[in-house]
């Protein structure tokens, strides 16, 4: 790598990660003032784990993330299978576009339209509505991840199984699913992290008693940043980072089977 490329890369990475690094460092700050370093301490983490409302919000977030990722995982996989397997059918391009559109749709619009829908059909807003909302936009991401794997999957494997007397369901459960499983899990993990850090859509569609962690943090920040927020954010970064690492590891070892 040339010296120019190296320094360009360093600058870009610094631009991306310096703010996060500052946040992590200050989560271990002993001082109550966010901008003044008062020595190393983990006391904000202790305070964090005694903060009832914050922990309740974290629990809501985890529940929503797990449920919506599970729904998006199933729907996204089915959508990817349909688009990959049925070749060219009427409206295929339109279906693909419709599936991927929520990924690029501004969150404000997604949130607002879902809110109007839920109000319109008289659905009480709460955890369920957030789950539905998150599953809606994460499905497209899962479909992309699983679709990429399906594209590289050797179709003759499924044909061979059918040729050997396996009915379509046995082919899917015994051959297709095990071979695309890493990408399904990767898609699930991606959906999980997307749900975990969404603030905008959740704010639109949540109701009383359903406050997610990002919503809770955001409302606290409006009253002033304190090191407890830094600590909570650091933990979230760690969790999301781990999940993303797991997802990319799963995607990288695809095709080797299980």
């Amino acid at each position: 790598m040339s010296p120019f490329a190296r320094s360009a890369l360093t600058l870009a990475l610094a631009f991306l990660y310096a703010p996060i690094l500052v946040l992590i460092v200050y989560s271990f700050n002993d001082s109550k003032l966010v901008t003044v370093w008062g020595g190393f301490s983990t006391r904000w983490y202790a305070i964090l784990f005694a903060d009832g409302p914050l922990l309740a919000a974290a629990l809501v977030s985890l529940k929503v993330a797990l449920l919506s990722a599970a729904i998006a995982g199933v729907l996204g996989t089915l959508a990817a299978l349909a688009l990959d397997r049925h070749g060219r059918f009427f409206g295929r391009g339109a279906y693909t576009g419709l599936l991927y559109a929520p990924m690029v749709m501004p969150e404000v619009i997604t949130g607002l339209s879902l809110l109007l829908l839920f109000v319109g059909i008289g659905l009480d807003r709460g955890i369920a509505t957030i789950v539905i909302a998150h599953a809606t936009f994460a499905t497209g991401f899962v479909a992309v991840v699983v679709g990429a794997r399906l594209k590289s999957l050797d179709r003759s494997l499924e044909e061979a199984a059918a040729d050997l007397g396996a009915a379509p369901l046995r082919v899917f459960l015994g051959i297709t699913l095990p071979l695309i499983a890493p990408s399904v899990v990767a898609g699930f993990l991606l959906a999980f992290t997307l749900s975990l850090d969404d603030l905008v859509i959740a704010s639109f569609v949540s109701g009383p008693g359903a406050t997610t962690l990002p919503m809770r943090l955001y409302s606290q920040v409006r009253l002033g940043v304190n090191p407890e927020i830094n600590a909570a954010s650091t933990l979230m970064i760690a969790l999301v980072g781990l999940v993303v690492l797991a997802a990319s590891w799963l995607t990288a070892r695809r095709g080797q089977g299980g």
Partner: peptide, 20 residues
Amino acid sequence: PPHRRPVNMMFQSYALFPHM
């Protein structure tokens, strides 16, 4: 359908199931 035919095929790529 293929799974009901009493013929079997050996594929050019062999199509061995990689996870078995």
